[in-house]
């Protein structure tokens, strides 16, 4: 259960981080606290939208989904079940793939690094690791 708890906490952190970036994008918060990073360059580039939707909003929705899935997986009746683990793993893997795509854009197309995006990348990778460890802990007999 510790891995699912970790996934829930990390998802909550990711949700706040994405919400912060989204609120910045729609002009509800001032300048981004970014040090010398290129957060504003990244956030206002044409790549800050994916299929017409703000990437930060996609992140917020994704983390909200992960949070709900991980909280559901903590319910007593689901502790030893495989599907909540599979769901977490699928969502986290999708998040990591999307993050890889965004990181590629940052490094090779926009040529600017947003520290908040790096933070989000670290969070989603950590959630994926937690989901993998959670799946591994389940004995084979209980996986069906």
């Amino acid at each position: 259960m510790i891995y699912r708890m970790a996934a829930a906490l990390l998802s909550l952190l990711g949700l706040f981080l994405s919400a912060y970036l989204y609120l910045y994008k729609i002009g509800w918060v001032g300048t981004l606290a970014c040090g010398a990073g290129g957060c504003e360059t990244v956030q206002t580039s044409q790549w800050s939208r994916f299929a017409g939707v703000e990437v930060a909003l996609i992140g917020a929705v994704g983390y909200a989904g992960l949070l709900l899935a991980s909280l559901a997986s903590l319910q007593p009746g689901l502790a030893g079940r495989r599907w909540p683990s599979d769901l977490l793993l699928t969502l986290a893997a999708g998040g990591v793939l999307f993050t890889l795509y965004l990181s590629f854009l940052e490094l090779f197309v926009i040529r600017a690094i947003c520290r908040w995006c790096v933070g989000s990348a670290a969070i989603i990778v950590a959630i994926l690791v937690a989901a993998l460890l959670d799946r591994r802990r389940l004995p084979a007999a209980q996986m069906q």
């Binding site: 002009g27 509800w28 300048t31 360059t41």
Partner: peptide
């Protein structure tokens, strides 16, 4: 170019600043 983006914002200043940075 960014009019549709900043005109709906609560505070356009940060967006203008980001354009300046760009």
């Amino acid at each position: 170019e960014g009019q549709s983006e900043w005109s709906e914002a609560r505070d356009a200043g940060p967006l203008f600043r980001s354009y300046a940075e760009g």
